[in-house]
């Protein structure tokens, strides 16, 4: 997937797949530099002044869209939110035509969320060469900025990745977050990546991505330094995949008691929004080991970093 320019710098940010450790580290380091901006009285920097960013959301989202919007504003860019699900495509306009129309409005960056795997890469291939595309989640394939904000959060607490055991618990099959995280963790050198869930929610041959499969949570999180709980989508409960939310919580819900099986300094993460009492107990979500709210804060800095990096690549290219 072509997301790098001739100098091997980010032109788009579509997937973690194929990115080097150095590049992922650069994203994290840049985010670290942006982090204090949000704590200042004047919460913006003029890096993207005069640039227009379009949040192109073919699928509803609150938190990802909002943090992208906030990140763009803190970089002084103009931002437009387009909810395409309720817009042109329902009138029969093709995706390509929608892109052409937006291009004609002189935009510089598309932040794309789409229900189909590979859609962000498809769009990146279609748009004019001066436009950068950031993937804000495509189907089951990737959610690379979520993975990077999780890596940022882990690094903040654990300092380095090398000796860590990370367990990702829940619906791996339908999770773009899990795919991006596994690849990011693996590239950053994590010692052991585990995926935990019932066979109905673990995709075929996930081991090829470098993860070990556990079908029960007790062994799956035993000794883990990081436990990442995934959201269980409403439509997966009471389906051929799972009998009920209650049974899921009984088998895979993260309770205080189960968390004791992990390393005593383990952190608990969740990409949100949380289903309390389904994948995670409130006592854990709000407990001392939870870094769930930190993830949200870090999301803004990481997205500022990604936006500035992809635009920076162009600025250098055009000067």
């Amino acid at each position: 997937m072509n997301q790098l320019d001739e100098q091997e710098r980010l032109k788009h940010f579509l997937t973690i797949e194929g990115l080097s450790r150095a590049l992922l580290t650069e994203v994290l380091d840049t985010a670290e530099r942006f982090s204090p901006v949000g704590e200042r009285a004047v919460k913006n920097v003029p890096l993207l002044r005069g640039k227009t960013v379009v949040n192109l959301f073919f699928e509803p989202s609150t938190r990802t869209r909002t943090t992208f919007e906030l990140a763009a504003k803190r970089l002084s860019a103009d931002i437009i939110n387009l909810n395409i699900a309720a817009s042109a495509t329902t009138k029969g306009e093709s995706l390509t035509d929608t892109l052409r129309t937006l291009e004609a409005m002189q935009c510089d960056m598309f932040v794309v969320r789409h229900q189909n795997s590979g859609a962000a890469a498809f769009i990146a291939k279609k748009v004019a060469p001066h436009i950068s595309v950031i993937n804000a989640g495509d189907g089951r394939y990737q959610h690379p900025t979520q993975a990077m904000l999780d890596m940022f959060t882990i690094r903040r607490v654990k300092q380095n990745f090398n000796d860590l055991i990370v367990a990702i618990v829940g619906d791996i099959t339908h999770s773009r977050v899990a795919r991006s995280e596994i690849q990011a963790l693996s590239t950053l050198g994590v010692a052991e990546i585990r995926v935990v869930g019932p066979k109905t929610l673990i995709p075929d041959k996930i081991e090829a991505l470098g993860a070990q499969v556990f079908n029960d949570i007790e062994t799956g999180i035993a000794g883990a330094d990081v436990v990442i709980m995934l959201r269980l989508q409403q439509e997966r409960m009471n389906s051929p995949l799972l009998p009920s939310a209650q049974e899921y919580f009984q088998s895979y819900g993260l309770t205080e008691q189960r968390l004791k099986l992990a390393d005593k300094n383990a952190i608990v993460m969740h990409p949100g929004p949380i289903n309390r009492g389904i994948e995670i107990d409130s006592a854990v979500a709000d407990g001392p080991q939870s870094v769930i709210l930190n993830q949200v804060v870090h999301g803004i800095a990481v997205r500022m970093a990604v936006m500035s990096l992809v635009i920076g690549a162009h600025a250098a290219g055009t000067n």
Binding site: G118, R140, Y141, R176, P203, K205, I206, A208, L209
Partner: peptide, 15 residues
């Protein structure tokens, strides 16, 4: 086809 590639790409597989 359902396998390592469909899993990597997140494309629903045909077993």
């Amino acid at each position: 086809h359902e396998g390592a590639v469909s899993t990597r790409l997140g494309i629903p597989g045909i077993p």
